[in-house]
Write a protein that binds this DNA or RNA. Structure first.
Lengths: 194, 194
DNA sequence: CCAGTTATAGCACGGTCGTTCTTTTCTGTC
DNA sequence: GACAGAAAAGAACGACCGTGCTATAACTGG
């Protein structure tokens, strides 16, 4: 990896952390330059525009998300076990990927009324994520652990709701019981799908 | 109501709509002045600072929330019926209160890592809202419609999760089935609490 | 209707925004 | 170690930010 790619990568990693805290829009080039110890123009030279940087941040985050959440799940045995790993990996991700929690969750309510390519990219990512949940839950159906007539998309909707709720209770309310809450809700979801 | 109070009220109403779209931080005084047809300084004279304006926006939204969501529920008969009215009123609220959906939901992920008085006010509001759900669900327990050993706070957590999910599916994903999804999830929640 | 208050506009401020251009410094190759 | 090319810094741009101050316009109670 050349020097340029190296710093570019470092910038994106730092930018992801900043964006998770202050938002993709709230994040500024100057702020980012200060955080990375670079000059504003030196940093900016790596990207075509702020919007391009925002999209790159999403792409970079997506890659790490696949590594840390999706891949572990695909290595687990099909069915509820895989679903558990997927969920646990997400919880871990939301606590460790950035100081501000899961960037995707934060970006969702920030961009939901801001049309443009950044929003479009995020919507694609969210659809992929929901589809991933549907697929994994589907393995639980075909393994006979979930009932045959389970509405998989409804299940994914409700599971996804828990991730949003967890960010809320853990990051906004700082509820010490946040982890316990989301785990119980997940278990209840699994139970009623059987 | 004097002239001053009148325009102040109009500003807050407009500001609520703008903030629901671009966020409490993303909203700017100039933008707001343009929207209301006032000069920047004329508008600004009604508030001590931008931060004070943000807090006033929350207060103003809270008042309308009580009118449109809480009050109707309290007029409904105790128990599940009241819970249904509360939930339906919230769904209506999220669709009609502002173009950007429920301001509180939007503010939650925007402010979850931004310490300060605005965040503090929001946290208080969210706690009150969760407590409201707990109280109403409690009436369903004492009416014998919900089981005696139901964990009310867990119930409130899961119901609140649905409001977050609805904002996500309806505003970000623009899912035509959003309403149906959240209704089904709500019914399932009610069923399993009985 | 007038006086006194209140509401609004105009203007300016230091600062930061995203962005561009030019110049300097560094990196990798023969 | 010189040289070409890439990477970073410096300086500047117009625009807009939040926030004051000052003057004018609009309201309101007597």
């Amino acid at each position: 990896m050349s020097k340029g790619d190296e710093t570019r990568h470092a910038i994106l990693t730092e930018a992801t952390a900043v964006a998770a805290k202050v938002g993709l829009t709230g994040m500024t080039i100057g702020q980012l330059a200060a955080h990375t110890g670079m000059s504003k123009s030196g940093l900016y030279a790596h990207f075509a525009s702020k919007e391009a940087l925002q999209i790159e941040i999403l792409r970079h985050t997506r890659e790490r998300f696949v590594d840390q959440v999706v891949r572990p799940a695909l290595q687990a045995p099909r069915g509820v076990a895989r679903l558990r790993v997927l969920f646990d990996a997400w919880v871990t991700w939301s606590e460790t990927s950035a100081d501000g929690g899961c960037l995707f969750v934060a970006a969702c309510s920030e961009l939901d009324d801001q049309p443009g390519p950044v929003r479009d990219a995020l919507v694609r990512d969210e659809h992929d994520w929901l589809e991933m949940i549907v697929t994994v839950a589907g393995t639980a159906v075909s393994e006979g652990e979930f009932r045959e007539d389970l509405d998989l998309e409804q299940f994914a909707y409700e599971l996804h709701a828990l991730t949003l709720a967890h960010q809320h209770s853990s990051r906004l309310l700082r509820d010490p019981k946040a982890l316990e809450r989301v785990r119980r809700a997940f278990d209840s979801l699994i139970t009623h799908a059987a």
